[in-house]
């Protein structure tokens, strides 16, 4: 009895240890940005998608590519432009004559990958953006009248540029709500930037040897495992209270949906697992509240006039609940 119990605790610790190894391996390439890497890992554990907002040249592609490599996931990148068609993402039927007969076969698009980086998603037309919706939500794409299931695990990370808004198609609220988190990549600190310059200017192709810490199958198991992390009822209620408070807040035009409550609890579980804690703490809820809520709430005109932003309002709510 005692041996089997020790095994359960051992399994849990091993899962947590593996996640920390992933962070260490990613750190061999990416300097700093620990919080962003942690949140991306949380999203992977929770089977969620991430909207990443950053200025150009911050290493988004490198970061996602490195994470996918360390986690043994296939990686693909879609550069969104106004003339990008949905079939460019999902794939299309082509004529195949290689076998002697002429037949239509489905040519898979870049969406058929485990980890997809949709760069500058707001440059794509709403029609193309909506093609990503089905992939994000249903984990499948439909071409013609045929639906194709995506590989598991599937993780989409979309980026958008916060400064250059000309000629863009901002994501509608409904589409933003489907992203589990919105992460904002900040500029690195001076010493971090020095390290970045040092790393990437000393060699022609800086490609350090990276270990594949876990496999695709392990990622799926970890996703199942994350949902098992125990949470106390009052902590769960805290998450719900935070979300419901956004709906009648004076500074907000509209609040977050129940999907936000689910995502906060799930993200908190993922964070607890990464931190090696066998239960969700209130600090996990507080920590994930901003990335989960900031893209799901709309500031009122008065709040904007007062110079508030979404993060400030979420912070106020977290402190008041």
């Amino acid at each position: 009895m005692q041996i089997s119990n020790l095994d359960e605790a051992g399994k849990y610790n091993k899962a947590s240890q593996k996640l920390n190894e992933i962070k260490e391996e990613v750190g061999k390439v990416i300097v700093g940005q620990e919080k962003i890497i942690e949140n991306i890992l949380i999203s992977v554990l929770c089977d969620g998608n991430v909207l990443l907002e950053s200025n150009p040249g911050m290493g988004k592609t490198k970061m996602v590519h490195t994470i996918s490599k360390v986690m043994g996931l296939d990686f693909s990148r879609i550069q969104n432009t106004p003339d990008l068609m949905p079939s460019d993402i999902t794939g299309t039927h082509i004529i195949d004559e290689s076998s002697g007969d002429t037949e239509f076969i489905f040519q898979r698009g870049p969406i058929f990958s485990n980890m997809v980086l949709a760069d500058e998603i707001n440059r794509a037309t709403p029609k193309t953006q909506s093609a990503l919706l089905e992939a994000m939500q249903e984990r499948q794409v439909t071409v013609g009248n045929q639906s194709y299931e995506l590989d598991k695990p599937f993780f989409l990370m979309a980026t958008q540029n916060p400064i250059d808004q000309e000629g863009t198609y901002p994501l509608p609220e409904a589409q933003r709500d489907r992203f589990m988190m919105k992460l904002e990549l900040d500029y690195p600190r001076k010493e971090e930037e020095q390290e970045i310059v040092e790393r990437f200017t000393s060699e022609l192709n800086y490609e350090p040897e990276l270990d594949e810490v876990i496999s695709k199958a392990s990622v799926v198991r970890l996703q199942e495992f994350t949902r098992q992390v125990p949470i106390a009822n009052d902590i769960k209620e805290r998450a719900i209270d935070i979300v419901t408070s956004t709906r009648d807040h004076d500074d907000l035009e509209y609040g977050a949906s129940p999907r936000a409550s689910m995502n906060i609890v799930l993200a908190a579980k993922g964070r607890a697992l990464i931190k090696g804690r066998n239960h969700v703490s209130a600090s996990d809820i507080n920590s994930v509240a901003k990335p989960v809520l900031r893209h799901r709430i709309g500031l009122s005109f008065q709040a904007e006039k007062k110079g508030k932003d979404e993060d400030k309002v979420v912070e106020e709510i977290v402190h008041s609940v």
């Binding site: 119990n5 020790l6 359960e8 605790a9 399994k11 849990y12 610790n13 495992f225 098992q228 992390v229 125990p230 066998n278 239960h279």
Partner: peptide, 8 residues
Amino acid sequence: VASQALFD
């Protein structure tokens, strides 16, 4: 597993 780890 997670709950058992917590109980332990």
